[in-house]
Nucleic acid binder design. Sequence first.
DNA 1: CTACTATATTACCATGCAGGAAATCAGCGA
DNA 2: TCGCTGATTTCCTGCATGGTAATATAGTAG
Lengths: 109, 109
Amino acid sequence: MARSYNDDTLDLVAVRFKVLGEPMRLRILNALREGERTVSELVQITGAGQANISKHLNLLHRNGLVERRKEGLNVFYRIADAGVFRLCDIICDSLEADITDRMRTLGIG
Amino acid sequence: MARSYNDDTLDLVAVRFKVLGEPMRLRILNALREGERTVSELVQITGAGQANISKHLNLLHRNGLVERRKEGLNVFYRIADAGVFRLCDIICDSLEADITDRMRTLGIG
DNA sequence: CTACTATATTACCATGCAGGAAATCAGCGA
DNA sequence: TCGCTGATTTCCTGCATGGTAATATAGTAG
Protein backbone atom coordinates (compact mmCIF):
# COMPACT_ATOMS: atom_id res chain seq x y z
CA MET A 1 0.00 0.00 0.00
CA ALA A 2 0.87 3.68 -0.22
CA ARG A 3 3.40 3.12 -2.94
CA SER A 4 4.75 6.42 -4.19
CA TYR A 5 4.27 7.26 -7.85
CA ASN A 6 6.58 9.71 -9.55
CA ASP A 7 5.90 10.96 -13.05
CA ASP A 8 8.22 8.48 -14.73
CA THR A 9 6.54 5.57 -13.04
CA LEU A 10 3.13 6.89 -13.98
CA ASP A 11 4.27 7.11 -17.58
CA LEU A 12 5.21 3.44 -17.56
CA VAL A 13 1.96 2.47 -15.89
CA ALA A 14 0.05 4.51 -18.45
CA VAL A 15 1.77 2.69 -21.28
CA ARG A 16 0.64 -0.63 -19.90
CA PHE A 17 -2.90 0.62 -19.35
CA LYS A 18 -2.92 1.87 -22.90
CA VAL A 19 -1.79 -1.49 -24.23
CA LEU A 20 -4.67 -3.09 -22.36
CA GLY A 21 -7.13 -0.41 -23.43
CA GLU A 22 -7.93 -2.00 -26.77
CA PRO A 23 -10.82 -4.47 -27.10
CA MET A 24 -9.07 -6.58 -29.70
CA ARG A 25 -6.01 -7.01 -27.53
CA LEU A 26 -8.17 -8.02 -24.60
CA ARG A 27 -9.90 -10.55 -26.83
CA ILE A 28 -6.54 -11.96 -27.78
CA LEU A 29 -5.45 -12.21 -24.17
CA ASN A 30 -8.78 -13.75 -23.26
CA ALA A 31 -8.35 -16.33 -26.00
CA LEU A 32 -4.96 -17.21 -24.55
CA ARG A 33 -6.44 -17.75 -21.13
CA GLU A 34 -6.69 -21.51 -21.47
CA GLY A 35 -3.36 -22.02 -23.13
CA GLU A 36 -1.18 -21.12 -26.05
CA ARG A 37 -2.54 -20.47 -29.52
CA THR A 38 -1.09 -19.93 -32.95
CA VAL A 39 -1.64 -16.70 -34.81
CA SER A 40 -4.01 -18.45 -37.20
CA GLU A 41 -6.08 -19.77 -34.34
CA LEU A 42 -6.31 -16.30 -32.86
CA VAL A 43 -7.35 -14.94 -36.23
CA GLN A 44 -10.13 -17.49 -36.39
CA ILE A 45 -11.25 -16.98 -32.79
CA THR A 46 -11.33 -13.22 -32.93
CA GLY A 47 -12.50 -12.85 -36.51
CA ALA A 48 -9.95 -10.12 -37.10
CA GLY A 49 -7.53 -9.82 -39.99
CA GLN A 50 -4.28 -11.69 -39.82
CA ALA A 51 -2.06 -8.65 -40.16
CA ASN A 52 -4.05 -6.94 -37.49
CA ILE A 53 -3.64 -9.80 -35.03
CA SER A 54 0.04 -10.03 -35.81
CA LYS A 55 0.56 -6.38 -35.02
CA HIS A 56 -1.39 -6.61 -31.79
CA LEU A 57 0.62 -9.67 -30.79
CA ASN A 58 3.81 -7.83 -31.54
CA LEU A 59 2.76 -4.98 -29.30
CA LEU A 60 1.69 -7.32 -26.52
CA HIS A 61 5.01 -9.11 -26.80
CA ARG A 62 7.08 -5.95 -26.75
CA ASN A 63 5.27 -4.97 -23.58
CA GLY A 64 5.90 -8.28 -21.88
CA LEU A 65 2.29 -9.44 -21.81
CA VAL A 66 2.68 -12.51 -24.02
CA GLU A 67 5.48 -14.90 -24.86
CA ARG A 68 6.14 -16.63 -28.17
CA ARG A 69 7.37 -20.01 -29.23
CA LYS A 70 8.15 -20.95 -32.79
CA GLU A 71 7.43 -24.43 -34.06
CA GLY A 72 7.89 -24.94 -37.76
CA LEU A 73 5.64 -22.60 -39.63
CA ASN A 74 3.54 -21.81 -36.60
CA VAL A 75 4.17 -19.31 -33.86
CA PHE A 76 2.50 -20.05 -30.56
CA TYR A 77 1.67 -17.25 -28.19
CA ARG A 78 0.87 -17.57 -24.52
CA ILE A 79 0.15 -15.33 -21.56
CA ALA A 80 3.34 -14.05 -19.97
CA ASP A 81 1.71 -12.20 -17.13
CA ALA A 82 -1.40 -13.75 -15.60
CA GLY A 83 -1.81 -10.61 -13.51
CA VAL A 84 -3.71 -9.22 -16.45
CA PHE A 85 -6.79 -11.16 -15.49
CA ARG A 86 -6.53 -9.91 -11.95
CA LEU A 87 -6.66 -6.41 -13.37
CA CYS A 88 -9.72 -7.28 -15.42
CA ASP A 89 -11.42 -8.79 -12.40
CA ILE A 90 -10.82 -5.68 -10.34
CA ILE A 91 -12.21 -3.51 -13.10
CA CYS A 92 -15.23 -5.75 -13.49
CA ASP A 93 -15.93 -5.50 -9.78
CA SER A 94 -15.63 -1.76 -10.04
CA LEU A 95 -17.94 -1.63 -13.05
CA GLU A 96 -20.52 -3.71 -11.27
CA ALA A 97 -20.33 -1.50 -8.20
CA ASP A 98 -20.69 1.49 -10.47
CA ILE A 99 -23.81 0.11 -12.07
CA THR A 100 -25.26 -0.77 -8.69
CA ASP A 101 -24.62 2.78 -7.53
CA ARG A 102 -26.30 4.28 -10.54
CA MET A 103 -29.31 2.05 -10.13
CA ARG A 104 -29.56 3.05 -6.48
CA THR A 105 -29.28 6.70 -7.48
CA LEU A 106 -32.13 6.19 -9.88
CA GLY A 107 -34.13 4.46 -7.21
CA ILE A 108 -34.21 1.18 -9.09
CA GLY A 109 -32.33 -0.93 -6.57
CA MET B 1 -11.60 -16.48 -10.12
CA ALA B 2 -12.02 -17.75 -13.65
CA ARG B 3 -14.55 -15.09 -14.42
CA SER B 4 -15.87 -15.42 -17.94
CA TYR B 5 -15.37 -12.52 -20.29
CA ASN B 6 -17.65 -12.06 -23.24
CA ASP B 7 -16.96 -9.45 -25.89
CA ASP B 8 -19.30 -6.87 -24.42
CA THR B 9 -17.62 -7.12 -21.06
CA LEU B 10 -14.20 -6.86 -22.64
CA ASP B 11 -15.33 -3.71 -24.41
CA LEU B 12 -16.28 -2.13 -21.12
CA VAL B 13 -13.05 -3.20 -19.49
CA ALA B 14 -11.11 -1.81 -22.44
CA VAL B 15 -12.81 1.55 -22.03
CA ARG B 16 -11.70 1.76 -18.44
CA PHE B 17 -8.17 0.71 -19.31
CA LYS B 18 -8.13 3.36 -21.99
CA VAL B 19 -9.26 6.02 -19.55
CA LEU B 20 -6.40 5.04 -17.28
CA GLY B 21 -3.93 4.82 -20.14
CA GLU B 22 -3.10 8.49 -20.16
CA PRO B 23 -0.22 9.88 -18.08
CA MET B 24 -1.96 13.15 -17.34
CA ARG B 25 -5.03 11.40 -16.02
CA LEU B 26 -2.89 9.20 -13.82
CA ARG B 27 -1.16 12.30 -12.50
CA ILE B 28 -4.52 13.79 -11.67
CA LEU B 29 -5.63 10.64 -9.87
CA ASN B 30 -2.32 10.49 -8.07
CA ALA B 31 -2.73 14.09 -6.97
CA LEU B 32 -6.13 13.18 -5.55
CA ARG B 33 -4.67 10.32 -3.56
CA GLU B 34 -4.43 12.27 -0.32
CA GLY B 35 -7.75 14.02 -0.62
CA GLU B 36 -9.92 16.25 -2.71
CA ARG B 37 -8.52 19.07 -4.80
CA THR B 38 -9.95 21.94 -6.78
CA VAL B 39 -9.38 22.22 -10.51
CA SER B 40 -7.00 25.11 -9.97
CA GLU B 41 -4.95 23.10 -7.54
CA LEU B 42 -4.73 20.26 -10.01
CA VAL B 43 -3.68 22.68 -12.72
CA GLN B 44 -0.91 23.93 -10.50
CA ILE B 45 0.20 20.47 -9.36
CA THR B 46 0.28 18.96 -12.80
CA GLY B 47 1.48 22.00 -14.70
CA ALA B 48 -1.07 21.35 -17.41
CA GLY B 49 -3.48 23.83 -18.96
CA GLN B 50 -6.78 24.56 -17.30
CA ALA B 51 -8.94 23.44 -20.20
CA ASN B 52 -6.92 20.30 -20.46
CA ILE B 53 -7.37 19.38 -16.82
CA SER B 54 -11.05 20.19 -17.01
CA LYS B 55 -11.56 17.86 -19.92
CA HIS B 56 -9.63 15.07 -18.27
CA LEU B 57 -11.65 15.52 -15.09
CA ASN B 58 -14.84 15.42 -17.10
CA LEU B 59 -13.79 12.13 -18.67
CA LEU B 60 -12.75 10.67 -15.34
CA HIS B 61 -16.06 11.74 -13.88
CA ARG B 62 -18.12 10.29 -16.71
CA ASN B 63 -16.34 7.02 -16.19
CA GLY B 64 -16.97 6.94 -12.47
CA LEU B 65 -13.37 7.37 -11.38
CA VAL B 66 -13.77 10.69 -9.59
CA GLU B 67 -16.56 12.50 -7.80
CA ARG B 68 -17.20 16.22 -7.67
CA ARG B 69 -18.42 18.68 -5.10
CA LYS B 70 -19.18 22.29 -5.78
CA GLU B 71 -18.45 24.94 -3.22
CA GLY B 72 -18.85 28.49 -4.37
CA LEU B 73 -16.66 29.12 -7.34
CA ASN B 74 -14.57 26.05 -6.70
CA VAL B 75 -15.21 22.51 -7.72
CA PHE B 76 -13.56 19.84 -5.62
CA TYR B 77 -12.74 16.49 -7.13
CA ARG B 78 -11.96 13.32 -5.25
CA ILE B 79 -11.24 9.69 -5.97
CA ALA B 80 -14.43 7.71 -6.43
CA ASP B 81 -12.82 4.33 -6.83
CA ALA B 82 -9.73 3.62 -4.75
CA GLY B 83 -9.33 0.37 -6.68
CA VAL B 84 -7.41 2.42 -9.19
CA PHE B 85 -4.34 2.38 -7.01
CA ARG B 86 -4.62 -1.35 -6.58
CA LEU B 87 -4.47 -1.60 -10.36
CA CYS B 88 -1.41 0.61 -10.45
CA ASP B 89 0.28 -1.45 -7.75
CA ILE B 90 -0.33 -4.66 -9.67
CA ILE B 91 1.09 -3.13 -12.81
CA CYS B 92 4.11 -1.82 -10.95
CA ASP B 93 4.76 -5.27 -9.54
CA SER B 94 4.48 -6.66 -13.03
CA LEU B 95 6.82 -4.03 -14.43
CA GLU B 96 9.37 -4.74 -11.74
CA ALA B 97 9.16 -8.46 -12.39
CA ASP B 98 9.58 -7.74 -16.07
CA ILE B 99 12.71 -5.73 -15.47
CA THR B 100 14.10 -8.40 -13.19
CA ASP B 101 13.46 -11.00 -15.87
CA ARG B 102 15.21 -8.98 -18.51
CA MET B 103 18.21 -8.40 -16.28
CA ARG B 104 18.41 -12.10 -15.58
CA THR B 105 18.19 -12.81 -19.28
CA LEU B 106 21.08 -10.46 -19.83
CA GLY B 107 23.03 -12.15 -17.08
CA ILE B 108 23.11 -9.06 -14.93
CA GLY B 109 21.23 -10.38 -11.94
C1' DC C 1 -25.59 46.53 -13.03
C1' DT C 2 -20.07 45.69 -13.65
C1' DA C 3 -15.88 43.34 -12.65
C1' DC C 4 -13.43 39.50 -11.31
C1' DT C 5 -12.49 34.52 -10.58
C1' DA C 6 -13.03 29.48 -11.19
C1' DT C 7 -14.76 25.94 -14.45
C1' DA C 8 -16.54 24.33 -18.42
C1' DT C 9 -17.10 24.22 -23.30
C1' DT C 10 -16.07 24.96 -28.08
C1' DA C 11 -13.10 25.05 -32.16
C1' DC C 12 -9.12 23.79 -34.12
C1' DC C 13 -4.69 21.42 -34.95
C1' DA C 14 -1.48 17.70 -34.73
C1' DT C 15 -0.42 13.21 -33.49
C1' DG C 16 -1.31 8.27 -32.79
C1' DC C 17 -3.13 4.28 -33.98
C1' DA C 18 -6.44 0.49 -35.47
C1' DG C 19 -7.54 -1.73 -39.59
C1' DG C 20 -6.91 -3.48 -44.33
C1' DA C 21 -4.28 -4.60 -48.76
C1' DA C 22 -0.27 -5.97 -50.53
C1' DA C 23 4.49 -7.14 -50.33
C1' DT C 24 7.98 -9.67 -47.84
C1' DC C 25 10.02 -13.09 -44.92
C1' DA C 26 10.50 -17.82 -43.02
C1' DG C 27 9.98 -22.72 -42.89
C1' DC C 28 8.57 -27.06 -44.98
C1' DG C 29 7.85 -30.47 -48.77
C1' DA C 30 8.19 -32.10 -53.55
C1' DT D 1 15.00 -25.19 -57.47
C1' DC D 2 9.72 -24.05 -57.02
C1' DG D 3 5.48 -23.79 -54.57
C1' DC D 4 2.76 -23.56 -50.50
C1' DT D 5 1.66 -21.83 -45.95
C1' DG D 6 2.06 -19.11 -41.68
C1' DA D 7 3.63 -14.87 -40.01
C1' DT D 8 5.59 -10.37 -40.23
C1' DT D 9 6.22 -5.95 -42.17
C1' DT D 10 5.10 -1.87 -45.02
C1' DC D 11 2.09 1.50 -46.76
C1' DC D 12 -2.05 3.80 -46.64
C1' DT D 13 -6.56 5.68 -44.84
C1' DG D 14 -9.78 7.20 -41.54
C1' DC D 15 -10.94 8.06 -36.99
C1' DA D 16 -10.12 9.17 -32.13
C1' DT D 17 -8.08 12.14 -29.01
C1' DG D 18 -4.63 15.10 -26.36
C1' DG D 19 -3.36 19.89 -26.17
C1' DT D 20 -4.23 24.80 -26.61
C1' DA D 21 -6.58 29.21 -27.33
C1' DA D 22 -10.73 31.45 -27.27
C1' DT D 23 -15.26 31.71 -25.67
C1' DA D 24 -18.97 30.78 -22.54
C1' DT D 25 -20.93 29.83 -18.04
C1' DA D 26 -21.42 30.26 -13.10
C1' DG D 27 -20.65 32.23 -8.78
C1' DT D 28 -19.00 36.11 -5.79
C1' DA D 29 -18.09 40.90 -4.50
C1' DG D 30 -18.67 45.79 -4.99
